[in-house]
Design a binder for these strands. Structure first.
Length: 569
RNA sequence: GCGCCUAUAGCUCAAUUGGAUAGAGCAACGGACUUCUAAUCCGUAGGUUGCAGGUUCGACUCCUGCUAGGCGUGCCA
């Protein structure tokens, strides 16, 4: 598609240039020509509203401009263009010869799993940080959504020529993990029979804390009471982090998300970088003392209040290691960094970007995208409370467990990933768990996978009938004459530009939608036309090429979003 | 109060980033398996794109003002 766009672009540019030369168009320069893939074959294969855009400058009606452009395209000289029509208010509808359709099939045939990839990124290094949940409990649903989106974005960037990695920032230092240590200590002592103890304000109430504490008792009894309370809490904190982080890793692996780098906040704090940054901020006069704390002049960067960076107790607030962490990312040589934050961190976005600016880094070096909340909805419409600290939250694992009961483990992960991906990042997602389970068999993800399985089945059948696929050189694609066949190829041709725009717009949801559309063209074709026909071997061969192409693109797309590619269902 | 997000078919969401007649799935109704897999297909029905203005050849998309919902607004992360 891109190649053909460029070719048509050049031809139309030539026509416009000619019109300018002979004075039929009075405009200062040749404009960039926008193309919109047509919605219906009646509008040709490629359409451009370029004449509409020129109307004002040229002081001519759009239709007349379109006529002028059309007049200067020599169809004999460019056999790739079958016809040009002017429609509507002045659209130029370009009808291409069948050759370009066949070129698409040839490209897929040759590139196979690389069809859809390109080198737009030129090897530029990108880091995407996502999930980064506190190691104080199991991953929740929003983390699951972030995991699916982040994982797919990395795949997308790598597909279009970037060198992208997945990174997880472990918040293994600071107040939250202290609270974890305290909470475990309370549950530990309760398990040993101590009464009148309560989880402190802001502590962790989840059952998993109690279970963990009881496991400690089972293993070591009351040994840890010999330690001082501070020592004990610190110890529980450390083993708690280790255990819970381990659980998170297991969940993520189960969800088929594999991080390349795990960064530790504790390590950042101990690296000395936070101190360097504070020193640098002090030199730049970004800091001042007040109320016994050290403040950063966030108002200089347009925020409505300054913020504390060193507390009265001498500890850094989380801004400092966070800024240091981003400095560290820069030092590691990433051209661009994308952070995916949950909705509860949106207040942090503006400040973090300002800190990065204060570090002297370019404004667009760091991009922060919010993965909006996920509401778990019951079939009666009530929302489930997912607050981590109230202890009543729905974990990613429990979601997959429920789905797995209905459709099995492999498809459970497929369905969950698909549901998380099919919506744009910035929309709030209502996830009706019961619906996802009860409708599991009519799920869109199966629709796509089934299309792939059917493709495979055709080749299986061909094998049994001893029909051998000829090499492409020996196949006459002109046998593909059905409109539904041409529509399928047109859709296949769109795939590379979908991949590219998904990456550039950080719009992972476009891949599932595309695959659903492609499947939506394949299934009707399958029902209407037989592929294997021993009475018409030439057409059979041509159709096998088409089916193979559909199969390839479906598989490529499914791999991109981390969903399994079944050969039979 | 201020900031961010959202509002499209009964429900959940799309809309090639400003293009032609706003599209899918689910739910509803009626049909199709002697066929390469019926987890499929064909047909019917469903709309003042929250409201009011503005920008232009053209607006679901951009701007302004409303309305409703969600989230954020800590010397937590």
């Amino acid at each position: 598609m891109d190649g053909i766009k460029e070719e048509i672009n050049n031809i139309l540019e030539g026509a416009i240039r000619k019109a300018i030369e002979i004075g039929e168009l009075q405009i200062s320069e040749v404009p960039t020509i926008p193309f919109s893939p047509t919605k219906t074959p009646e509008h040709g294969d490629l359409a451009t509203p370029v004449a509409l855009g020129l109307a004002k400058q040229a002081k001519l009606p759009p239709k007349q401009i379109a006529e002028t452009i059309k007049k200067h395209v020599d169809l004999d000289e460019h056999p790739i263009i079958r016809n040009i029509e002017i429609a509507g208010p002045g659209f130029l509808n370009v009808y291409l010869s069948n050759d370009w359709l066949f070129d698409t099939l040839q490209a897929i045939y040759e590139l196979e799993e690389n069809y859809g990839t390109c080198n737009k990124g030129m090897g530029e290094r990108i880091q995407i940080e996502f999930v980064s949940a506190n190691p104080t409990g199991p991953l929740n649903i929003v983390s699951g959504r972030a995991a699916a989106v982040g994982d797919t974005l990395v795949n997308l960037f790598n597909a279009v020529g970037y060198d992208a990695i997945r990174e997880y920032y472990v918040n293994d230092a600071g107040g939250q993990v202290e609270k974890l240590g305290e909470s475990i200590d309370i549950r530990y002592r309760q398990a040993l029979g101590e009464e009148k103890l309560e989880i402190p304000e802001g502590g962790y109430q989840g059952d998993y804390v109690q279970e963990f504490a009881e496991a400690i008792v089972d293993e070591n009894g009351d040994d840890h009471l010999k330690l001082s309370q501070d020592e004990r809490i610190a110890y529980f904190r450390d083993i708690g982090i280790e255990y819970l982080l381990g659980q998170q890793k297991v969940s993520l692996e189960r969800f088929r998300v594999c991080f390349d780098v795990w960064s530790s906040e504790k390590a950042i704090r101990e690296s000395g970088k936070p101190d360097e940054i504070i020193e640098m901020f002090r030199e730049k006069k970004y800091l001042y003392e007040a109320d016994g704390a050290t403040w950063f002049r966030m108002t200089d960067f347009g925020d409505d209040k300054d913020c504390v960076v060193i507390r009265t107790n001498g500890e850094y607030t989380y801004f400092v290691p966070d800024a240091a962490y981003h400095r560290d990312k820069y030092d590691r040589g990433f051209h661009k960094v994308i952070d995916l934050f949950g909705p509860d961190h949106q207040g942090h976005v503006f400040r973090l970007k300002n800190f990065v600016k204060a570090l002297g880094l370019e404004d667009d070096w760091l991009e922060v995208d919010i993965i909006q909340q996920v509401n778990l909805v019951d079939s009666d419409g009530t929302r489930l409370d997912m607050s981590k600290r109230s202890g009543q939250f729905f974990t990613l694992d429990s979601l997959i467990d429920e789905l797995a009961d209905a459709v099995g483990e492999q498809f459970a992960v497929d369905v969950a990933r698909y549901f998380f991906l099919m919506r744009a990042n910035n929309t709030h997602l209502d996830f009706n768990v019961e619906l996802a389970i009860t409708q599991a068999n009519e799920n869109p993800v199966f629709y796509i996978q089934y299309a792939h399985a059917r493709c495979c089945s055709i080749f299986q059948q061909a094998k049994e009938q001893q029909i051998k696929l000829r090499s492409l050189d020996d196949i006459d694609l002109e046998y593909l004459t059905e409109p539904s066949e041409h529509e399928l190829i047109r859709k296949l041709a769109e795939y590379p530009s979908i991949v590219l725009s998904s990456a550039e717009g950080r719009e992972a949801h476009r891949i599932p939608h595309y695959l659903h559309e492609l499947s939506g063209l394949f299934h009707p074709f399958y029902n209407q036309h037989r592929v294997l026909d021993t009475d018409n071997m030439d057409r059979t061969q041509a159709r096998l090429i088409l089916i193979q192409s559909v199969q390839t693109v479906l598989a490529n797309g499914l791999r991109l979003i981390g969903i399994s590619v079944p050969e039979s269902m």
